[in-house]
């Protein structure tokens, strides 16, 4: 994707940080937002996305994305069980539990 196209997308976005987009992102992020939150967030998200738009002027054609900050060989481990066997500890901090189960509101009718 060339810089022009990226600039285009970002421009579209800046034009579109509106109530609808804020609510869509909030839903994707599973965060409930109030009407007054939405108003704030519109301005704040616009400001942040405007700030990062600076990147569109960098030519990144033929540049590989960074996958690791430090040059090193990928570490491989043996595919064996090395841990586990303490269900009491696993559920210890759960806000609601029953025996070794996490309890949640009903998901299937």
């Amino acid at each position: 994707m060339g810089p022009e196209r990226i600039r285009g997308i970002i421009y579209e976005v800046l034009m579109k940080v509106d109530e609808k987009l804020v609510r869509r992102i909030a839903h994707l992020a599973r965060i409930k937002v109030s009407d007054s939150d939405v108003q704030h967030l519109e301005g704040e998200l616009t400001s942040i996305l405007g700030f990062v738009e600076l990147l569109s002027e960098v030519d990144t054609d033929n540049v590989e994305p960074m996958t690791s900050a430090v040059d090193r060989e990928m570490f491989e481990r043996k595919d064996v069980v090395t841990d586990g066997g303490y269900p009491d500890d696993i559920v210890k901090n759960a806000p609601e539990r029953d025996d070794h189960y996490f309890m949640v509101p009903k998901v299937v009718e």
Binding site: I10, I25, L28, A29, L45, I48, L55, V58, T60, P65
Partner: peptide, 30 residues
């Protein structure tokens, strides 16, 4: 924290990953 989660959710959402996250990781290489 909400602000940052929302920015992050947005830049990773369908259709924007290349324009934001991938672009930023390329800038990181530079």
């Amino acid at each position: 924290v909400k602000r940052r989660i929302m920015i992050g959710t947005y830049v990773l959402s369908a259709g924007y990953y290349d324009a934001y996250y991938l672009k930023a990781q390329k800038v990181r290489t530079l």
